[in-house]
Amino acid sequence: QAPETKIVDKSRVACDGGEGALGHPRVWLQIPEDTGWVECPYCDCKYVLKGSKADAL
C-alpha cells in the first residue's frame, strides 16, 4: 500500500507510525523551507507543509 500523505500546519512534526504499539519509535521531523515536505525514515509517511510550494502540487 502507498505511504500516507499528511498536510500539516507546522514545519516540525512528530511521527510514531500512528498505530500505537504497532507503530515505530517517535521521531521529530523538520520540514525544509526549500522543499516544503519531509518523509518519515521509518514508515515513509510524507508530511507536506500547508501553503508551501509542495502543497500546491
Rank of each mutant, 00 (worst) to 15 (best):
G17S: 03
V48F: 06
T5M: 12
W28I: 02
E19K: 13
Q1P: 11
I31L: 02
R26L: 10
C40D: 08
I7N: 01
G51E: 07
W37Q: 03
E19L: 12
D44T: 14
L57K: 06
V48L: 06
V48E: 07
G51W: 03
Q1A: 11
I31H: 03
A56C: 13
R12F: 13
D44L: 15
I31Y: 02
G20M: 04
K6W: 09
G18A: 07
A2V: 11
L22T: 10
G17L: 01
L49F: 07
D16T: 13
A2D: 10
Q30L: 13
E39V: 14
E33R: 10
V38L: 04
K10P: 02
G18R: 09
E33M: 09
S52W: 01
G17T: 02
V13S: 01
K50H: 08
P25N: 06
T35S: 08
A2Q: 13
E4M: 15
G51Q: 04
V38M: 06
C43R: 00
E39Y: 15
S52N: 02
V8A: 03
V38G: 01
G23L: 07
E33I: 11
K6Q: 09
L49R: 08
L29T: 02
I31Q: 01
H24V: 04
P32D: 11
T5K: 06
P32R: 06
K10M: 09
L22K: 13
Q30R: 10
A21K: 10
W28E: 00
I31K: 01
D9P: 05
I31W: 02
V13P: 02
A56K: 13
P32V: 04
T5Q: 08
A56E: 12
A2E: 11
C45I: 15
Q30Y: 13
P3I: 11
D16R: 07
P3M: 14
S11F: 08
G18K: 10
E4C: 15
D9A: 10
A14F: 14
G18L: 07
K50P: 08
P41H: 06
W28M: 03
T35C: 06
P3Q: 13
P3V: 11
S52M: 02
W37H: 01
C15M: 00
I7F: 09
Y42R: 12
K53D: 10
L29D: 00
A56I: 14
P3S: 13
S52T: 05
T35I: 13
P41D: 01
L49P: 14
G51D: 07
G23V: 09
G17C: 06
P25Y: 07
G17P: 04
E4R: 15
A21S: 10
C15S: 00
K50S: 09
V13N: 03
C43F: 00
Y47T: 03
L22E: 09
K53F: 08
Q30T: 13
L22I: 04
Y42P: 05
T35E: 07
E4I: 15
C43M: 01
L29A: 02
C43Y: 02
V13Y: 04
C15P: 00
G23C: 00
Y47D: 12
P41F: 06
R26S: 01
K6N: 08
G18H: 13
C45Q: 15
D55L: 01
W37D: 01
A2N: 12
T35W: 06
G51V: 04
P25Q: 09
G20R: 04
D9R: 09
L22H: 09
K46G: 03
C45E: 00
E33A: 10
I7M: 08
R26M: 08
E19T: 09
E39Q: 15
L57T: 13
S11K: 09
D55G: 03
K53Y: 08
C43H: 02
A14Y: 14
Q30N: 10
T5C: 15
D16L: 08
R12T: 13
L22V: 06
V13Q: 02
K50D: 10
E19M: 08
I31V: 01
G36A: 03
G36Q: 04
P3N: 11
C43W: 04
R26E: 01
W37L: 04
A21E: 11
K53W: 09
D55A: 04
L29R: 02
K50I: 07
L29P: 00
I7W: 05
T35L: 12
L29G: 01
Q30I: 13
H24W: 04
S52C: 13
L49Q: 10
K46Y: 07
E33Y: 10
C40I: 08
V48C: 12
C43I: 01
K10T: 14
Y42K: 13
E19F: 09
A2F: 13
G36D: 04
G36P: 02
Q1Y: 12
V48T: 01
A21I: 11
G23R: 14
Q1V: 13
D55S: 01
H24G: 04
H24K: 02
S52Q: 03
R26W: 08
L57Y: 09
Q1R: 14
C40P: 06
G36C: 02
L49V: 09
